[in-house]
Computed example of a mutant assay.
Amino acid sequence: MDRSPPFSSSSSDSSQFSSTSSSPAKSTRVVLSIECLKGSSKADEWTGDMLQTGDIVEELRIGNMIVKSPFKNGKSGIQKILHGSFKQKETSIRVRVRRGSDELAELQACIVPGDQFVGRKHYVLRAIDDPNYAVGFIDRTESECLDLQGQKLNISLVDFSMLDI
């Protein structure tokens, strides 16, 4: 009998977003991804690089609650968790994301109501020390995320190649 914690992931877990085949291709698996909404250059509370659109969310920590990927019901499930936490005035959150296969980054932020969808309970995360930096969540396939990450890597490589070192 499997005794893994309710929010842990394992290779045998299946997501409702997986394709209907018995062994879905990794690139078609739907994951929770970061969507940058606003940004600036200040980000003291980040470890590693700034989170970017396309980063794959691996874990959320709100108070004593830890929620790990795969996230039940994706973005809508996370929005319900954020809504419940906001109502309970538990707005401090730590988000851990993955880039590629092994690079991790983390953000400590606050849960705030989003101003994009009037009349809808929609929540975003604002960086603690930089209220101009906000991220949201979106469901994407893993291959879409990796493509977005690859585009940013290619841009960075081009920028470095222009330097006379």
Score class of each variant (00 low, 15 high):
23 S>P: 01
76 S>V: 14
47 T>A: 03
20 T>Q: 11
55 D>Q: 08
36 C>F: 02
82 L>K: 05
71 F>L: 08
50 M>I: 12
53 T>S: 15
82 L>S: 04
87 K>N: 08
76 S>A: 11
20 T>K: 10
50 M>C: 15
50 M>T: 14
60 L>M: 07
76 S>R: 10
60 L>T: 02
56 I>L: 06
77 G>A: 10
33 S>Q: 00
44 D>A: 07
43 A>M: 14
28 T>N: 09
101 S>M: 08
78 I>M: 15
45 E>R: 12
59 E>I: 02
58 E>S: 12
67 V>P: 01
75 K>D: 12
83 H>E: 07
46 W>Q: 08
76 S>P: 04
26 K>V: 00
91 T>D: 10
105 A>Q: 10
84 G>T: 01
86 F>E: 09
27 S>A: 07
29 R>I: 02
57 V>P: 01
71 F>D: 06
71 F>K: 11
67 V>T: 10
98 R>C: 04
87 K>L: 06
50 M>K: 15
46 W>V: 13
18 S>I: 02
96 R>N: 06
92 S>T: 14
31 V>T: 00
56 I>A: 03
31 V>P: 01
99 R>W: 15
69 S>H: 09
82 L>H: 06
33 S>N: 00
31 V>R: 01
57 V>F: 02
20 T>Y: 04
96 R>L: 08
84 G>F: 02
101 S>P: 02
49 D>V: 14
28 T>R: 05
62 I>L: 03
23 S>C: 09
60 L>I: 07
45 E>W: 05
103 E>T: 12
88 Q>K: 12
58 E>V: 08
92 S>A: 15
89 K>C: 11
18 S>A: 15
102 D>I: 03
30 V>G: 01
22 S>T: 11
93 I>F: 09
78 I>F: 05
63 G>Q: 06
68 K>W: 01
105 A>C: 09
102 D>A: 09
74 G>H: 10
62 I>W: 00
99 R>G: 11
77 G>T: 14
44 D>Q: 06
78 I>V: 15
20 T>I: 07
87 K>Q: 11
66 I>G: 04
29 R>K: 10
